[in-house]
Structures are given as C-alpha cells and as structure tokens.
Amino acid sequence: MSPADPAREGHADSTRAGRTDPTRAGHVDPVGESRADPTRVGVVRRPNPLWTFGLLRSELVTTVRRRRTLALLGVLAAVPVLIAIAVRIETRDGAPAGGNGTGPAFLTQVTNNGLFLVFTALAATLPFFLPMAVGVVAGDAIAGEAGGGTLRYLLVAPAGRTRLLLIKYATVLAFCLLATLVVTVSALAVGALLFPLGDLTTISGTRIGLAEGLGRALLIALVVAASLVGVAAVGLFVSTLTQSGIAAMATTVGLLVTVQIVDQIPQLHTLQPYLFPHYWLSFADLMRDPVYWDGLTRNLGLQALYAAVFGSAAWARFTTKDISA
C-alpha cells in the first residue's frame, strides 16, 4: 500500500476545517445563527421578539435613571412652578399687577383659571427647554454607547444595526412624551393649588366646560410631544456621526439654537416654513372654537418629513459605519 500523500492530507484537513471551524466568516451553526463578526453589514440574525422588547425596556429604564435625564426632567417640572409663583406674586384682584390686560393671551388668563397654566408652561418650554432636553437624549443615543465602549457589545447580543437604531429612536420618542407630560402634570398640579379651576374661555371667546378643557390640555400635550419628532430624528442622525456623546449633544443643541435664530429673521421668510420649529406654537389653535387645523396639520406633516429624511440618513450612516468601540 502506497504511503499517504502529505499534500493531499493537508488539503483534506483544510477542507474539513473550513466545514467545522465556527470562527470562520460566514459559518452558520445548526440552529441558523450566524457566528460571523456581528458588526458586519448583511449578517442575518433571528433574535427572539421577546428579546427585542426586553432591550427596549432596558433602554427606557436606563435612559430615565440617568442623572442627566432626571436633572432635565427636574428643570422642566420647575418651569411651571416658577411661572405660577411669579404670576401669583404679581397678581392683585385677579389681574396682573401693573398690567393693563397686555401680555400673552394664556398668561393673562392664568389667574382666572389654573388650567391655563398648562398652556402657558408648554408655550414657554417648547421653544427651547423641551427641544434642548430631547436633543441631549437623542445626541447621546448612539454616540454615548460608542464613547462608553458598549455599542459593539449591543450588536453582539445580537441586536442588528437596524433593530438597535429603531429601539434607540423609540426610546427618544418615549422621552419626548415623558418630558411633555412632566411639564403638563406639574403645571396642572400647581395651577390647581394656586388658582381656581372651572369653565374656561377659549381664544375665540366661547366657553367650554372643565372636562372639555382637560381633554384639550391632554390633546395639546400630545401635539407638543409630536412636535419634537423632528428634533429627535436630527439628534439621532448627529449621534451616528461621532463617537463622542458630548460632541453629539452639543452639536444637536447648537443646530437647534441656529434654526431658532434663522426662524426669526424676516429676510429668510421663504425658508422659514421648512424649518422644523416654525409651526411649533400652532398648538394654540386647539384652544379656538372651532379648532383651526391648518397650522396643526402643517406642523405634524413637517415633523414626519424630518423624521423620514433624517431617520433614513441615520440608518444609512449607522448600517455602513465601522464599529470599533
């Protein structure tokens, strides 16, 4: 019998190794789970749907428990309190002291009905405080994980880049709703303590009952939360461009301030209807009778457009970038 050919034996060994070595790229184990580099684009994963909900719950809990998030929510809750105290101190006989009926429509009505404090607080926080808080959370969503060295481990789970990005965006949207509700509940509680509650007069001059007023306050809160969808998408996109959470947060807040300034320059009136904060204060139309829907629908449509454009840009960037941390 002729001796075995060492070259053929080596070829056979390499062939067997290629079939059984689980560390080789593209190998699929018997249950169909890819063991290739989990950060590579195009790797097929089949995570359990329950695991997805578990990751979403974990993201929500982690975001809310952060000291930075609690501080932001504390500031938002304090704004209605400060407004109510200021109005209470400066009020004599149900009218602002030293005033002649001038000032914002909602603010002049707070002393007559505490429910108007909800609308006043939302109008005061929406131009800057609420979007700033959302920008901080959105900017830290991906960049914070990369900077902390945990992003690669999340992808190993396996989350999948698209799935992880959607979970991050859903977490930011949940924070939008939470932040708006914090302002609303704080204003409602303080308004009920310091001012009377009852039937209220709409901007159109008609009277509505307290129950309907509460319903409109809740609807306004939901519209304000929806108005932050565009900021959340912009912040998420910025977060995919860097591995520094601080840089992403600062850039997002800087863009917010810049856009707000541009929206106030009369010479740029042609551009302003396309800026995401342009129709933010249209929620006041919900306090008209009948309700004016034109500004509201434009606002929600514009937010959906920003979410689609910058959400797609974030997905394109995140699913093609090299994850090294």
Rank of each mutant, 00 (worst) to 15 (best):
P49H: 12
A36D: 15
I89T: 13
R40W: 05
R65K: 11
L70M: 13
I89F: 06
G26A: 01
T69G: 07
R68N: 01
R92M: 04
L73H: 09
L70P: 01
A95Q: 12
A36C: 01
I85W: 13
P47V: 05
V44I: 10
R40C: 01
P30F: 04
L76R: 05
R92H: 13
S58D: 13
G26C: 06
L55D: 03
I85M: 10
P30M: 02
V87M: 04
V87K: 07
I83G: 06
G42D: 10
G26V: 01
V28M: 12
D29A: 11
V79Q: 04
R65S: 15
F53Q: 07
T63M: 14
S34V: 01
E90I: 01
T39V: 02
G54I: 01
E59Q: 14
V61F: 07
T62M: 11
V41D: 13
L82E: 04
R57A: 09
I85G: 08
L72W: 03
A95F: 08
G74H: 05
L72P: 05
R66Q: 14
L76W: 04
P49F: 10
V44A: 15
L60M: 09
S34E: 12
A86R: 07
T52P: 03
P80I: 09
A36L: 03
P47L: 14
A84H: 08
L60H: 01
L70S: 03
R66Y: 00
P30H: 02
T62I: 03
W51H: 12
R66D: 00
V43Q: 13
V87T: 15
T69W: 02
S34Y: 05
V64G: 01
V87F: 03
P80L: 09
R45A: 08
E33W: 10
V87I: 12
L50Y: 02
P49M: 11
V61I: 14
L76F: 04
L60F: 08
V41A: 15
R65D: 15
L50C: 03
L55Y: 11
R57E: 09
L50V: 09
R40S: 07
V81I: 15
G42P: 08
A86T: 10
P47W: 09
R40H: 06
G54T: 10
L76Y: 03
A84L: 09
A77V: 00
L50G: 15
P30T: 01
V81C: 05
V61D: 06
R35S: 14
S58E: 14
L82W: 03
D29Y: 05
G54E: 06
L50I: 07
G94K: 02
R65Q: 13
T63A: 14
P49D: 05
H27D: 00
G94A: 08
L50S: 12
T39K: 11
E59T: 04
L56P: 03
T69C: 05
R67P: 00
I89V: 15
L70H: 02
R46D: 11
H27T: 05
L82Y: 05
A77M: 04
E33V: 08
S34W: 06
D29Q: 10
P47G: 14
G42L: 09
A78S: 11
V44E: 13
L72F: 03
P47T: 12
L56A: 15
T63S: 11
G42S: 06
V87N: 07
R66L: 13
V87S: 05
A71W: 08
I85L: 15
L70D: 00
F53P: 00
V43T: 14
V28Y: 06
V61H: 07
P80F: 11
G26H: 13
V43C: 06
F53N: 00
V61A: 14
